[in-house]
Amino acid sequence: MRKLFKIALAIAALVAVALWIVSAPETLAESPEFARSGDVENGRYVFYAGGCASCHSAPKAKGEAKLLLTGGRAFASPFGTFYAPNISPDPEFGIGNWSAMDLANAMIKGVSPDGQHYYPAFPYTSYSRVELADIVDLRAFLDTLPPSDTVNQSHDLPLPFRFRRALGSWKILYLDDDPVPVSGALTRGQYLVEGLGHCAQCHTPRTVFGGLKPAKWMSGAPLPEGKGRVPNITPHADGLAYWSIGDFTEYLESGFTPDFDSASGIMVDVIENTAYLSDEDRLAIATYLKALMPIAKP
């Protein structure tokens, strides 16, 4: 019995050590980007796109007062109540003495300058995708805001959730910067159009060497035979800006445009093929075409 107990203890100790190692805070590598002095105007734009004031301004603050980032707003959750911190440029009560790299580690890795994990009430699992350049610019903009001497309030969490180190393990499961897969239709549409459909071979202009010009993707080209043109099918005013997704799927099935013009030339062959596809696949193709960069016809 004593031997079994000792073995169990040893295993528990090993597991604890393993968890400790695995939950260590990860920070960013040095980057020349951090040495750049940020662009305040872009930083202002990033500030609004990131919604910083909405959480970090004082509770009930409105208008100009939302630029005083005192913190203090409460966020109730199933894990307890979190209080947003002061992120004004005050060097003592705010983040005035943070470097751009500190801000980047907080936003991208969820780690404080003294190596503690932040609670993901701070949405670093989204901010993990933010570019370093935008963070450097944000740092510059935050420095222009008024300082606040509001003291940070501690989060009000039940005992099990007070152990910050555990967030390191949580991050293994939930922190990444992979792009979230977009709607199935767009991915499938990309596969069909860029791959099997080989639409760009006619709809994209070529260089003198006969290669496709990606910057002019699907914006139309001369017919290879010489006479006539292949239309611009990007959502540009000279292309198909005014076609809805339904117009595309109808055309791919029947060959009729929204004006009930009927497909011409080699496109008739194409429609014979797209008419064979499923409704979902025609919808996928339409979704992709509507998502293209609008480009003027050459």
Partner: peptide, 16 residues
Amino acid sequence: LGGNCKACHKVYRIKR
């Protein structure tokens, strides 16, 4: 009738 549209447009029509 749609077959007529298709067959004729395929050979005799060209976009400009």
